[in-house]
Computed example of a mutant assay.
Amino acid sequence: MSGYGGYSTTSYGAAGGDNDGGFMWGSQGGGSQSAVKPINDESLRPVTIKQIIDAEPAYAGEASFRIDGLDVKQVTIVGQVRAIMQQTTNITYRIDDGTGTIEVKQWLDADKQDAASDSGPSFREEDYVRVWGRLKSFNSKRHVGAHVIKPVRDFNEVNYHLLEATYVHLFFTRGGPPQDGGMGMGGGGMAGGDDSMFVDDGNDARYRGYSQKAKKMFDYLSRSGNPTEGIHMQVISREASMTIQDVMTAAEELLSHGTIYTTMDDETFAILER
């Protein structure tokens, strides 16, 4: 299993490796480095090529990168082969996944070099492949040192990979899925703050077509008992975990639909009962 906080996924079980040492989590199976690495360093992470291009260097002078604030070294990508350049010691593939392009280098085993040159790769240009490898940089140019490259047999794998990469990105930037099974105001949802999901418990027609901010404010006013004197925006901001700007935006939307009205002043609101 590879793990990132609460997110985990089973290993892909690919066999093989290059002189980068394979991808055994928590350690390096070969090469000159033998020290055990932290699990977050060596866990296999599904990414898009754009994430690789935008990754921040983790340490000066080292081929180490950070994506979403975590060190990332082992990655898997899925994309289309745009070019194949075979050399004496390695084969370089140019891979495009729709978010960007990157070079993938697969070093040839000297003992198996003759066999590899006879058979060549099991895929051609324009084919889709999945790559497992190590994120590297040479002369300030990033590439993936491939451990394994396999052709994609089912195009659903392309869509699955993009969804998985998106899920992992959202996990680290917005938090994990709800723990209480709900998606309402419990605070356990994947999204935080004004992006939290909302359940229309009452199936009220006034909920339909509203933004998440407006729904969140309306829901708070409903649960507060909707006092006739209204509730000030500062209280709404504090109790509903919304910024003042979000409360103002939500209030504008609800006022334009005639769902709420101002009471004591222009910053105090109550639901217009119908």
Rank of each mutant, 00 (worst) to 15 (best):
T48Q: 11
V75D: 11
Q51V: 00
S8P: 07
D97W: 03
F23A: 10
M233F: 13
I53A: 06
S11E: 13
Q179C: 00
G189L: 04
D109S: 11
G22V: 09
D219R: 00
W25H: 10
A63G: 10
K150I: 13
M233H: 11
K50C: 01
G209A: 00
T243A: 05
G17N: 01
I53E: 07
P57V: 03
S196H: 06
N159D: 09
G100N: 06
Y59N: 13
Y7D: 00
G209E: 07
V158N: 00
K112A: 10
D109Y: 00
A240N: 08
L163Q: 09
T228D: 14
G100V: 01
D195W: 08
K150S: 12
Y4R: 15
N159E: 10
A58E: 09
A110W: 04
V247K: 00
G225F: 03
G79D: 05
A205T: 13
Y210G: 07
Q245C: 00
F172K: 15
K136Q: 14
S34P: 00
R174V: 02
L44W: 10
V104R: 02
A60C: 00
Y210D: 15
S222C: 06
R174E: 13
S27L: 14
Q86G: 00
S237Y: 02
V72A: 13
T92P: 00
K73I: 14
G5Q: 08
T262N: 13
G184P: 08
N226K: 03
G30W: 11
I67F: 12
D154L: 01
K105A: 12
R124K: 14
D96I: 03
